[in-house]
Design a binder for these strands. Structure first.
Lengths: 292, 292
DNA sequence: AGACTGTGATACCCGCCAGGTATCTGTCGT
DNA sequence: ACGACAGATACCTGGCGGGTATCACAGTCT
């Protein structure tokens, strides 16, 4: 009943992701035979088949799928242990706050101001990431606290505090017929043949079917919007990164978006607590009104 | 920026818990010198002092404290990966539900009945544990789902669903003066010189100061209650394990206890989802009324 | 069909590092 | 001052993780 080693988990994750021993070995910087051995050893020790190697390729068994998921979170936890320990030893350690690039500008600015005015405040470093990456940054120790958005982001496993609620707007090229409207409905914006909604990758990296372009970063999306190739429904406060020649029209029946501050339940760091307190105070003194 | 190995984490946790290289090495089944080397290597690779070895013993530095906490959760995650994978490979795998021994008898019975009547229900295995151990069982993969009690148990990091709310009662020897009362207050029960409240260990294993006896298991406590040596305030539904010669008196100002069903946010197993659905249905059809 | 290709498995060797034993150093008791 | 104790150091050894070469098998092309 000996534990697994992180090396074995890393190896398995590589193979499970590549579904190809050669490429996985390449990625890991080792040769293929030791990798095959390691995976076979894993299967033997767990007493479970993880991969179906039949002709032409490798496929995950059900147990393999479970291990892939569990191994990722375990590896994140190990990486977090290393990172947080290193940072704990650094006397000049800043608190790292992660948020989606381009979201909640104004709120973030006011949060940082409020936090800085807290007595004995630790310096706060802001880390910007792509959509949906905040959770991972929290889990693997790159960040201590995050701004996230319900219902878009996966908040499972974190402690959270609601900060503000806002509606969503559609972002359209200025010349588009719908741009003249006072308000829109979801049905209207999702049925615009010349401006299909962009598609984001799912958690596993694959894309849902549909007519819109596939995007995986904010900048890709921004460019497509600028080119007038796609239409966008976003929280009102994110309007800040619209292009000058685009207009924002409220979408009345889109679900409200709640901005929350989230942090890992481990680690009752006073610095995190202080920032959360600042956030709570911010909420009470009134919400920021998105400019323009 | 290489990852830590679980071996190193296990070693560090052993030393951090024992605060003594010799005993830690003993516990790990290795000799002391390799252990010293491993810890030194860890400190070198992390670039952080983890332990202060001064005269007469070893003490954790601040970074060491961080690593101890993080390492425990990381090791739990690794152990969970192994256990859940093994179980996923077992075709006859039951769902494991963990709860405090002696708590929520009636609710549990009805939950199991309801779950079994669910179409395509997986078999459910019940694991009973000591007070406060449920969270760990969920985290290290021994269990898939737990019944826990707010505000007593630490629910951080889990998804939860409230099941029922109930008041608390004081458990007294039948002959005691207070046993004749219709109801009591917290102030009254906490100020009974001949029946001090028992003390539970804190998360770190130490005991708070006070006059009452130290207990760490339900059975120790049960025995002390039976001997008339301590007084007990517990949720009303836990009355089931009272002794015949004891009476339960409601404590009107004790905080309400909410029984919740909790599960790890990882692993979207349909079996867990089904059990949670059964629990939700149970709540809607009415709460169990504690017998007696 | 037969040679070719691309894949994971096997065979075998090597070097490193985890682990063991013996010993040293420093610090407390008394 | 001396013994007892704890952690560090020195040094050796064996197992295992990793490398190269090769096999075995299935699909594919001419």
């Amino acid at each position: 009943m000996d534990d697994l080693e992180t090396r074995e988990l890393r190896y398995f994750v590589a193979v499970a992701e590549e579904l190809h021993f050669g490429r996985a070995a390449d990625r890991l910087g080792i040769a293929q035979p030791p990798l095959s051995r390691a995976i076979r050893g894993l299967e033997r020790r767990l007493g479970v088949r993880l991969l179906d190697r039949d002709r032409r390729g490798v496929a995950l068994t059900e147990a393999g799928g479970v291990l892939l998921r569990e191994a990722r979170t375990a590896l994140d936890a190990v990486a977090a242990a290393a990172r947080r320990t290193r940072r704990a030893g650094d006397p000049r350690r800043p608190l790292v706050l992660v948020t989606k690039a381009g979201a909640s500008h104004e709120l973030l600015r006011r949060l940082l101001d409020t936090a800085a005015s807290e007595p004995g405040a630790a310096p706060v470093e802001v880390l910007l990431c792509e959509v949906g990456e905040q959770a991972r940054r929290l889990r693997d120790g790159h960040a201590d606290v995050a701004l996230m958005h319900r219902p878009f982001d996966d908040l499972a496993g974190f402690d959270t505090e609601d900060l503000c609620v806002e509606g969503q707007v559609a972002l359209l090229p200025a010349g588009h017929p719908l741009a003249a409207r006072d308000q829109l409905t979801l049905a209207e914006v999702s049925d615009v043949p010349d401006l299909p909604l962009a598609r984001w990758p799912r958690l596993d990296g694959s894309y849902p079917d549909g007519p819109g372009p596939e995007v995986r970063t904010q900048s890709q999306l921004a460019q497509l919007v600028a080119l007038g190739r796609t239409l966008l429904v976003i929280p009102a406060s994110s309007r800040a990164w619209q292009w000058p020649d685009h207009v924002a029209v409220p979408v009345v029946d889109a679900p409200d978006v709640t901005t929350v501050i989230a942090w890992p339940p481990t680690g009752h760091s006073p610095a995190v607590a202080s920032l959360v307190r600042a956030a709570a105070r911010l909420r009470e003194t009134g919400l920021p009104v998105p400019a323009g």
